[in-house]
């Protein structure tokens, strides 16, 4: 019996050795899939968007095989630290609080302003009713102003709230609001931006220093040869490196 256990242990050890190599080549990319233009699900049911193209390019440069997974926004960090995927590439702004729990690569977008979308130009942003998605930096921002914050579970509902008059305006990332305000005749984007949060970076486990170095190097090379700017251009995200 004892020998049997030793053999199994030995087998397991060899398995570990080979699999450690396997890890180096397959990286699971965690995203939300509900935040165009950064990431969304296209008509073919696949992850698409700025971050999809960026991630594929980064993986190619770092010579990694990457796989895309979607996860609910609320549990996206707990699932990263518990090892269900290896990176978060989901339009996540680099903030101090997040940085305490996970590591970020250098930013791959410049800080994107948040913007207001309202039904008319003349809304009272100081004392009015402002909608935001629950647990976002925008919600935290409004809660500190004099305005009345009303929180909805999804971004979709925040837009709906403005359209049906529940809220005077919605505060969200500008890149997310722009296409919506462009296509909906009832909505206008106000000429006022709020700078919240830092740029967007790739989130990684703190214990995954090696992977972080690889992605950092790949982002640097994309910044240097201008391909990152080309991608930002293509998906109409503000700010160039």
């Amino acid at each position: 019996m004892k020998t049997l256990i030793t053999t199994t242990a030995l087998l397991a050890l060899t398995a570990t050795a080979t699999l450690a190599d396997g890890h180096a080549s397959t990286v699971r990319m965690g995203t939300e899939g509900a935040y165009p233009p950064y990431n969304f699900i296209n008509d073919a049911g696949e992850v698409d968007g700025f971050e999809r193209e960026l991630g594929d390019e980064l993986c190619a440069r770092a010579e990694l095989t990457c796989e895309w997974v979607t996860n609910e926004w609320d549990s996206i960090i707990p699932n990263l630290v518990s090892g269900n995927y290896d990176t978060i590439i989901a339009g996540m702004s680099i903030t101090d609080e997040r940085d305490e729990v996970i590591d970020f690569t250098q930013n791959y977008t410049l800080p994107d302003p948040s913007a207001y979308v309202a039904a008319s130009e003349d809304v009272d942003l100081e004392n009015g009713v402002l909608a935001a998605q629950t647990n976002t930096i925008q919600a935290a921002f409004i809660s500190e102003t004099g305005a009345t914050l009303v929180e909805f579970a999804t971004p979709e509902e925040t837009i709906a709230a403005v359209k049906n008059g529940e809220a005077d305006a919605v505060l969200a990332d500008k890149a997310f609001l722009t296409p919506i305000a462009d296509e909906d005749p009832d909505l206008v984007m106000l000429d006022k931006d709020e700078m919240l949060g830092g740029g967007i970076g790739l989130g990684l486990r703190e214990s995954d220093g090696e992977l972080k170095a690889k992605f950092d190097a790949a982002i640097t090379s994309m910044k240097e040869d201008g391909s990152l700017n080309a991608l930002l251009e293509k998906w109409e995200i503000s700010g160039r490196f």
């Binding site: 397991a12 398995a15 570990t16 699999l19 450690a20 396997g22 890890h23 397959t26 699971r28 630290v81 518990s82 090892g83 729990v101 996970i102 486990r205 703190e206 214990s207």
Partner: peptide
Amino acid sequence: NDFVVCQAAKVPLG
């Protein structure tokens, strides 16, 4: 904050 197990123990394998 990280929960790190060896690669062989990952379910499913990486």
